[in-house]
Design a protein around this nucleic acid. Structure first.
Length: 427
RNA sequence: UCCCCGUUAGCUCAAUUGGCAGAGCGGGUGGCUGUUAACCACUAGGUUGUAGGUUCGAGUCCUACACGGGGAGCCA
């Protein structure tokens, strides 16, 4: 039996294979907390119920020893979780000595050094279960609507945008780079499959050292042929709403463990507020932050803007010069692009960046040249505007920032099993 | 890359003005029949990050370096 099946096994004799989470003793009765990956369950060992051998074996158990226990499941209000195991027999697989992570407090540095063991702690378990639920519901959302998952390459031949620092590696004597986005490949795929998305790791060699940055992070990037700018935002609203509902419905226990208040999440319903870049500047001005036209938002600015609303908020129509080369200028206002960022509530900042893409060959070529990018490198990308070009758009959602927001974590480093941080790649 | 803070027992932290290096957790031993990070008693555990300097005397003051944390910038 797995611990999360306790309810269906009340009164039955079962076997649980797991690890010792904690042990308390009161002389002639031991309370053993066992975890098996699906949850934590208390096991009661009374001296009068078991052999002396078994009783002494339990007495000597240490934190994180691996064990297989047999006993009868019963309901008891005194047990954490409401169910406990009346232990009959125990087999010790390995008696653990000196497990470094104790039930008391530890510093972040120490815990990160022991990330491979920290994963076993209740809080980390809950966070990564929520991450899994978010990944699953994101994929379900797109799969249900007929999107095709198209995997983007991780090794790429050139700096797709030239602006950010890429990790370089050797590709049979030629330089190759770790991908920072699958978008350009998804544009090719959208012309083949109509509605596509990719979901994988992306890399940046930026010397960023903040609570919102990782060197390796996961991004889901949908791309849709013939979509309009407004439809794109609608899709994002529906996606975020779906994911939040799925977490609320399926991760009640996990949310409780990490102490995440659910009211702010329950408010997440379409439509989300949408503000023009110009309005954003006005809101910031009102809060004493003066930005010039074309300035990008920093962490502070994003927090101020998001705090104006109790839902995620779109900021759209950014100045052309502040955004990427492939974004399509608004025909009614060519100084701005048809792009929107989605800012998460509660100070979590940008979690989605999306836009209409330039579908005109000449304009795209012009923008490539203006940005000092190599025409040769983008030959295949330009081909997409030569053979049956259509209006299209998409977006990228950063998984770790989304998890950090939904789980209300102070730092993205706990949202991924093995975070890659500035200058830190162990374990 | 820049700014700020820190580094003392396995872990989290104390140590008054520069004057005997100490507690909780974890470990060990013993006790306790319903515990909830259990509790109680006893016990072992230290080159105070490294290298120099000032001083009768440095965990404490100075310099450099290393490592960790927080923030800024950078940032599909």
């Amino acid at each position: 039996m797995y611990i999360n099946e306790a309810k269906e096994n009340v009164g039955k004799e079962v076997e649980i294979k797991g690890w010792v989470y904690n042990i308390r003793s009161s002389g002639k009765i031991h309370f053993l907390l066992i975890r098996d990956g699906t949850g934590i369950m208390q096991s009661v060992v009374s001296k009068s119920d078991v052999s002396e051998d078994t009783f002494n074996t339990v007495k000597k158990l240490t934190q994180e020893s691996s064990i297989i226990v047999k006993g009868i499941v019963r309901e008891d209000k005194r047990a954490p979780g409401g169910y406990e195991l009346l232990l009959k027999d125990i087999k010790v697989i390995q008696l653990t000595k000196d497990y470094p992570i104790t039930p008391k407090e530890h510093g972040v540095g120490f815990l990160m050094e022991h990330r491979h063991l920290w994963l076993r702690s209740k809080r980390q378990w809950a966070i990564l279960r929520i991450r899994h639920r978010i990944e699953k519901s994101l994929r379900d959302f797109f799969d249900k609507q007929g999107f095709t998952l198209v995997d983007a390459p991780i090794l790429t031949p050139n700096a797709c945008e030239g602006s950010t620092t890429l990790f370089e590696t050797d590709y049979f004597g030629k330089p190759a780079f770790l991908s920072q986005s699958g978008q350009l490949y998804m544009e090719a795929a959208a012309m083949a499959f109509g509605k596509v998305y990719c979901f994988g790791p992306t890399f940046r060699a930026e010397k960023s050292k903040t609570r919102r940055h990782l060197m390796e992070f996961w991004m889901l990037e949908p791309e849709i042929a013939y979509i309009t700018f407004e439809e794109n935002m609608k899709l994002q609203e529906n996606m975020i709403t779906y994911v939040v509902k799925e977490v609320l419905n399926n991760c009640k226990e996990e949310l409780k463990i990490i102490g995440r208040p659910t009211e702010p999440l329950e408010r997440v319903e379409p439509p989300f507020p949408k503000i023009h870049y110009k309005e954003a500047l006005e809101i910031l001005e009102k809060h004493g932050k003066h930005l010039e036209w074309g300035d990008d938002f920093g962490g502070d600015e994003e927090t101020i803007l998001a705090a104006e609303f109790d839902k995620p908020v779109f900021v759209h129509h950014f100045p052309v010069e502040s955004k990427a080369f492939y974004m399509k200028p608004d025909p009614d206002d060519p100084e701005t692009v048809l792009a929107a960022d989605l800012l998460a509530p509660e100070g979590y900042g940008e979690i989605i960046g999306g836009s209409q893409r330039i579908d005109d060959y000449d304009l795209l070529l012009q923008r490539i040249k203006e940005n000092n990018l190599s025409e040769e490198d983008y030959k295949w990308y330009l081909d997409l505007r030569k053979y049956g070009s259509v209006p299209h758009g998409g977006f990228g959602i950063g998984l770790e920032r989304t998890v950090a927001w939904i789980a209300k974590l102070p730092h993205v480093r706990e949202t991924i099993p093995f975070p890659r941080l500035l200058d830190k790649i162990y374990p």
